[in-house]
Nucleic acid binder design. Sequence first.
DNA 1: ATGGCTACGATCCGTAGA
Length: 257
Amino acid sequence: MRLATWNVNSIKVRLPQLLDWLRATSPDVVCLQELKTEEPKFPRTELEAAGYACAVNGQKTYNGVAILSHTPPVDVVADIPGFADEQKRVIAATVDGVRVVCAYCPNGQAVGSEKYQYKLRWFAALRDYLAAELQMHPRLAVAGDFNVAPEDRDVHDPKAWEGQVLVSAPERDAWRALLALGLKDSFRLFEQPEKIYSWWDYRMLGFRRNAGLRIDHVLLSARLAQACTASTIDKAPRKLERPSDHAPVLAEFGAGA
DNA sequence: ATGGCTACGATCCGTAGA
C-alpha cells in the first residue's frame, strides 16, 4: 500500500494538478487538507473517474479534509469525537484494514495568541483521540499537515525560527506526546538527505532558496512502522505553475503490514 | 527593510495561511 498526504491549499484550484499527480504516482490512499470548500462542491465525480472513492469533511473558505482511496473507505468518522470544534480538520476511515486518520492541525498564528492556545488544546484532544484509536486499530496511520517542524533539522534556518510558531517548545512537546503513544514518524524511519522539507513560503522565493519546513507527516503505529519500506517527499508538484505551498508526503508498506 | 505570495469572499480590501 502506498499512502500519501497533501495539503492542496484549495481543491478547486489544485484539482488538475491533483489528477495529474494521481495518474503519475498512483497512491492507494491520499489524505488531503485545506480543501477550502464545502462537501457539495467537492469534485467527487472527477476523482471517482480517476479511480478514487472519497470521504469528505468540508467547510466553506477554510480548512476541510478528505480521504481518497482505490478501495472505498469504510467506518468513516468526521472530526475528533467529543471535542467541540467548528473547524473541519479531521476525517478518519478504514481502507484495506488500515485505519487512516487525516488531520489538518491548526497553524497557531503566533506564539501566545488565541489561535496558539487553540492549537495546543486541539493537539491534546488529538492525542486522546489517537490513544483510543490505537486501542482499537493496531494498524493505524495518521497523515496530514501537523504544522509542527519536529526538530531543528526540519527547519531551513533554525536560528531565525527559534521560538516561533511551528517550532516552539510547547508545539514540539505536543508532537512528542503523539510519538509517546507509540507512533513513529515514517520519514525518520529511513536515512534521508539533509534539508528536505514539505512546505515553502510563497513569498521571498522560498522554494527557490529551499527555505522550507518539514511540517507534513505520516505517523505510523508500531505494526505499520515495521512494515514500512519507504517514506519520501515529492517536490515535483511544488515546481509547477500555481502550486500549493505544500508538497505531498508518501509512505509505503509491504505485504507484511 | 520583518515585506515580499496565494486563495477566498466579499469587493477593488480584509482575513488567513505558515
